[in-house]
Each structure stands twice: as structure tokens, then as C-alpha cells.
Computed example of a mutant assay.
Amino acid sequence: MSRVKTLILAGLIAVPALALAVRLAGLVSIRADIIAMLWPLFVAAGLVTLAGLSLLRSPRWWPARITALVLAIGLIAAATPWAWLRTSSQSLPASQAPAEAPSETLRLVTLNVWAGNTDPDAAGRFLADGDFDVIALQEVSSAAGRTLDRIETSHPNQVGCRWRVRLLTRLPVNDAGCVDEEVLPAAWLSTTLQGEPVTIVAVHLARPVNESRHRRQVEGLAAWLAARPEHNLVLMGDFNVSQGSVLMRDLEAELAPLERVTIARRTWPSRHLSPVPVIGIDHVWLGPGLCAGAVRVGPHVGSDHRPVMAAVHACKGW
């Protein structure tokens, strides 16, 4: 085998091996875990290796070629979020509970409006037309003011907290407030579902690239939730953590017994950097007393995030 072919083969082994190492490095490095969330990079590395092997047809050094093949296939299999490849509807069902569920349903939506929103009118129309009971917004800046103009009349009960997190509802509010504004950008309110109190929390966690701040916010959120062990609780917002990452595994452990219902829901980036969303960093979590009848990702509304919608009802046996 020529020296050039030897170097090419060495590269075809090194590329998937390095990519696999980065994914595993997420166990010990936050920054590596952030990169590991970007699964298309790793799938592309595997495909490049496969393409290179298809062109490198020399019968010599077959053990090295098989090694590269196994690494490439293993990388693609491990990196591809198979559940995310299925599509989801862009809208919730009509405003009525499923026949087998209780008659009353909460229709919820969370959206990072984004300070750089390119079409705040589209965001406003989507929120106004969605027939939502509760709206959770993040990055509500002055540039997104037109978004709020469309919904402030229909959703007069509001709570706004530091760092541009806001909750709006058309339902009666029993109590409301902010969660430790010195540490955590989160707003909460208490309403009623079938005569029982329900607490709804909107949150916007820091990007994990700032590891100490992100972990401090997660710990603060977990501590606040532990001090309010409501059976019926909704937690939603921008968590800046994606499914399949070590960070998500840690977050799920911290927030237990809340259950994340945004499985296989891609929300970022929305027409920014990519024509379709690649990862899901916007989530909805439910307490043990609540169940989700439907969870959907909404359309592009000028933000780099897609909205997440959920129809939530009391679980059987409430």
C-alpha cells in the first residue's frame, strides 16, 4: 500500500475513534458533553469514514479497514437519536380532553422568544391563536414587545421575573412569584385544575458552557422544588440541555420525581445555523399527579427556538 493510502487509512481510523472519545469525554467534561449534544457532527464523521473506505479498495491491511468500518458504524449507531427522527404534528388537538381523561385539560406552551427574534408578529399570532391556558416565555426583551401586545389582553394574569422570564395565563391565579431571583431565572404561579391546586413554573437555565452558574441554577431549582413537594406541578422552559447528554441524565436525577414528557422533541436551532431543529433543549416536566395527553413542537416563529406545546390533564386516580 502506498504511503498516501496508509495515511488515508490511518485518518479513517482516527476520525471515528476521536469522535467516540469526545462523546465519552462528556462523562468527565461539561464542554465535551455540550459538543456531544450536536449529534449531526458525529454522524457526519461516521459517514465520511464510510465514504473513504468505499473509495479505498486495496485488499491489503484488511484488519485496519475492518477496524475503521466497525468504528464508523458504531459511531453512527451511537450518535443518531433514532427517536428524534420521527416527525411530530405542528399543533395540538382541538380544545377538549381525551375521552378517557378527565374533562378538564390545561393547554400549555413554552417559547424562548429570543432577543434577536426576526418576526415577533409571527410569534404573537401563534400564541394568540393557540388557545393556550398558560404561556411561558423566556428572553422577553423590548424587541419582542409586539409578541406580548397580542396576548396581554387575553392572558391578563401575569408574573414577570428577572432575566426576562414571564408566565401569562387566562386562568384565575391563587398565588404567584419568582424563584430566588439572585440565582435562578424562574417564575411560578398557582392555579386550579378540577378543584385541586396546580403549580406551574417557567425557567431559563444558563448555558452549560458556564458550568458553575449552570450547576448552581440546577441545584437552586431542585432545592426550591424539594421545599414545595406539590403532587401537581408543571415545570417548563429553556433548559439548554439536550436528550442523550450526561447533563440531561444529571438534570433528570436532580428533578425527580418530576418526569420529562418532551421525549424526541427537537426545538433548536430553528432556521438558524440549520434548516431544521437538531436538538431539543426546551422541555416540559410533570409531577406525579399530572399526565400529558399530547406534546408537540410548534412552527418557526422568528426565534432560534421552536415552541413546545402540551395538553396536560389529571392522571387517573387523582
Rank of each mutant, 00 (worst) to 15 (best):
V134S: 03
A99R: 14
A21Y: 02
A99G: 12
W84H: 07
L18D: 00
H231W: 11
Q138E: 12
R86A: 13
L85T: 09
L111F: 13
P59I: 12
Q217R: 04
R260S: 10
G293H: 11
W318H: 14
E196C: 00
N157S: 12
V241D: 03
S303F: 05
S303N: 09
A294R: 13
L233P: 10
N240T: 04
I34H: 06
F42D: 06
S212I: 06
A123M: 08
L167N: 04
S142I: 08
R213V: 03
Q96Y: 10
G160Q: 09
R150C: 04
R86S: 09
T110G: 13
A226M: 08
G220D: 01
L273I: 05
G289V: 07
N232V: 09
D129H: 07
P156I: 14
S270D: 14
I30Y: 03
C178A: 05
A25V: 00
R164H: 07
M37I: 00
P59E: 11
R306M: 12
M309A: 13
G317N: 14
V284P: 07
V48F: 10
A101W: 12
V173C: 10
S245V: 00
V278Q: 06
V276F: 01
W318F: 14
G302T: 09
P208N: 08
W114T: 11
V203R: 01
L258S: 13
P208F: 00
A206N: 09
N157G: 04
